[in-house]
């Protein structure tokens, strides 16, 4: 068997894939957080809960309406986005003028409420969801065996991240978003309904979390704590990438997923903390994050 640095090559590829998958979720979630923080200056602690809601909606669509995975990819992010817009309109909007900590506390509370409700209805262990039939097999790539659905998740995440990046950087809507991030008052004076833009951005950002939840449903147990398990790492990703930098969030998300995966091979006890070690080092060297601009 081929060995690299004393480890079998298939193991390394397996960990690379695992890292890419975790990185996919880090990237999709931290990208939404970065977009929301950039424009609304809200640190959305409810992002993980929205991810969890997306997974449960996916399960609910199948269980109650018979809508399968492909339908859920289209349908599930929508109610999550609407939930986000309602939260923005009635909970977050009244506190924009207050210190940033209030938004953090509010969304943290919202996350607790959503997680509590899910626990109440589905129990702590949650429910299970099967991958779509077309992807429920393992393919031999020559150098490793890959469950096809896992490959699909990485591919889908790259499409979602790339598409979002293109929208933000290359379209008129994106230009409005970037301009409103810099100077919302002036953009509003030009005749743009900025309050509506904020609501749509929050809705869009959490819809991305919902979409990540759809992709996660066949992969992880659909349970009330699935979001909170992930969100600590995702926040570390946002801090490392630089708050508000979308490209930074994407690259850092995938990068840290891979670092985590390889740490697990070479020093297993370190895999749980490596992201936070990287965060500490980055914060010492570049307080604004790898891709952030100094405030």
């Amino acid at each position: 068997m081929v060995m690299v640095l004393g480890k079998p090559l298939p193991l390394l590829f397996g960990q690379l894939l695992l890292g890419l998958i975790n990185g996919s979720f880090y990237a999709m979630l931290s990208m939404g957080l970065a977009i929301i923080f950039g424009l609304l200056r809200i640190i959305n602690f409810a992002h993980g809960a929205m991810f969890m809601v997306g997974a449960f909606v996916t399960w609910g669509l199948l269980t109650y309406l018979g809508i399968g995975f492909w339908g859920a990819i289209i349908c599930a992010p929508l109610p999550v986005g609407l939930l986000g817009m309602a939260a923005e309109r009635f909970l977050i909007r009244p506190i924009y003028k207050l210190d940033i900590l209030y938004g953090l506390l509010l969304t943290f509370g919202l996350a607790q409420v959503l997680q509590g409700l899910a626990t109440n209805f589905f129990g702590v262990s949650g429910v299970s969801y099967d991958p779509p039939a077309a992807f429920a097999r393992v393919v031999n790539l020559g150098f490793m065996y890959m469950p096809l659905y896992r490959g699909f998740v990485v591919f889908a995440a790259i499409i979602v991240c790339g598409g979002t990046w293109l929208i933000v950087e290359k379209t008129r809507l994106g230009a409005l978003l970037r301009a409103a991030t810099e100077n919302p008052a002036l953009v509003q004076a030009f005749g743009v309904n900025v309050p509506r833009l904020l609501a749509l951005t929050f809705g869009g950002g959490v819809a991305l979390a919902g979409l990540a939840g759809v992709l996660a449903a066949p992969l992880y147990a659909v349970n009330p704590g699935m979001g909170s398990d992930l969100i600590d790492t995702v926040f570390a990703v946002v801090v490392i990438g630089g708050m508000g930098s979308i490209g930074g969030a994407i690259l850092t998300g995938f990068g840290l997923g891979i670092i985590e995966g390889f740490t697990d091979v070479f020093y297993p006890p370190g895999s749980a903390v490596v992201v936070f070690v990287v965060m500490a080092i980055v914060l010492l060297a570049r307080p604004a994050g790898l891709f952030g601009k100094a405030a």
């Binding site: 002036l186 509003q188 004076a189 743009v192």
Partner: peptide
Amino acid sequence: ARPDRIGRQGIGFCPEERGIFASL
């Protein structure tokens, strides 16, 4: 009126600090 409604009425504003967007 809200600023966006005022802008929509047909008043264009060029602020003192010019307000050119760096990320655009």
